[in-house]
Amino acid sequence: MRILWALARNTFVEALRDKVFYLLLGFGAFLFSASRLLAPLALGEERRVTLDVGLAAISLFGCLITIFVGHQMIFREVERKTLYFLFSRPIHRAHFVWGKFCGLASVLAVSLVVMGALLVLVLKISGYPVDASIVQALVLAFFGLMILAAIAVLIAAFTTPVLAGLLTLAAYVVGHGSGDLFWLLERTGSPGAAALVRTLGWILPRLDLYSEMLPVLDGSGWTPIQMGWCVLYALLYGGACLCLATVVLQRREFTL
């Protein structure tokens, strides 16, 4: 546990030093500008637009932070030879993978708290009500980003930084479109398509589940069971990705 904590803390501090949180400033500026520019055009739906833009921006900036921190997290250790420092000690490859993931998860957690607070601040300043569904949406966004972070670690375990960045972005895009893809395939009525849906259902990340807007826009929120399923799915999918990343690293040789 101490090893895991030490690795996670190092990843977190390194991300801070890489000035990843500058992205949060970008988020703040974007949010305030968007709410000021778009809300007046919404004709009575100003709160809805602010929330919609705010939550979408949180998801997008979370994705950017994941890519920024995750794309070279393993490559860099190899490139600058710090792996010698780590692997000459009693560290299992799983420690390394989970330590990196926990560090990235901490960065995302802090970012989400800051972005969520900024969103609430904008809503308050604009005089719109703030309810518990917004907190639920932020919690779900966090677990959605956990899935993306686990995918980023898995991809980083076997590829170059540029490819890792592109593939993580692709996973984000595909993950958010996977619900629509399944919906379309199911409606074709073909048995082949149904089999394809079942197969893809196991492979593609269902990130769309974590970015639903309706429950927060109408204030109805999510039931505890819905939240529980989403959290469970994130834990299982993320856990599977990290186990796979451990296997990949276990088999990988480091020529340095």
């Binding site: 190092n10 600058r80 710090t82 000690r89 009693p90």
Partner: peptide
């Protein structure tokens, strides 16, 4: 893995987290 607790290693041109 566990025996590496009893090992100290200095690489050529060592590099650490800047």
């Amino acid at each position: 893995r566990t025996v590496r607790r009893r090992l100290g290693f200095l690489p050529e041109l060592p590099a650490y987290y800047p």
